[in-house]
Every structure is written in C-alpha cells, then in structure tokens.
C-alpha cells in the first residue's frame, strides 16, 4: 500500500466515510463525520501508522486532506 493509499484508508476509517469521499478538498467540520472527536481519532491513527508524533500546531492546522498531506510531508512522509 502506498502512503497515499494509507492516507485515504486512515481518513476513511477514522471519519467512517467511503474512500471515494476522501479527496483533497474535503475539509474539517464540513461534514458531520469530521468533528473534533473524529479529528483526534484520525490524528492518533496517522501517528500510529506513520510512526510520528505531531505538534499541536500541526494538529490544529490539519484542516483538509490536502493540508494533511502537506503536513505529513514535513515529517518525512513521502507522497
């Protein structure tokens, strides 16, 4: 599985949405499933999968799928 596939899978699992809905433009708090609780589940899953610990500022900034990819790249996760 590529890192991009992992990202889509983790978003889909944490937000309990279909993988097809995990697109770059998907934003935090624009669907009921991506609320603050699901956000923390997502963060925990990303950290576990990619073996990183995110800074609090990055957790707050992770406001879309595109932004998530951008932030993870700063932790040497290649897409």
């Amino acid at each position: 599985m590529t890192n991009n596939e992992k990202l889509v899978h983790l978003f889909s699992e944490a937000l309990t949405i279909a993988p097809e809905l995990v697109v770059d433009s998907l934003q935090y708090n624009t669907i009921p499933q991506w609320d603050s609780t699901a956000h923390m589940v997502l963060i925990a899953q990303l950290e576990a999968e990619f073996e990183i610990m995110l800074d609090t500022d990055d957790i707050i900034d992770m406001s879309s799928v595109a932004k998530a990819r951008e932030i993870l790249a700063r932790y040497d996760i290649e897409f």
Binding site: M40, V41, I43, A44, Q45, A48, M53, T56
Partner: peptide, 13 residues
C-alpha cells in the same frame, strides 16, 4: 494537558 494529549493519542487504538 500536554501529557494527557499525547497519552490519549497513543492509547486510542
């Protein structure tokens, strides 16, 4: 606060 934030993420699985 930070101790619990990090811990909760490690525990959440």
């Amino acid at each position: 606060f930070p101790l619990s934030q990090f811990a909760a993420r490690l525990m959440s699985k």
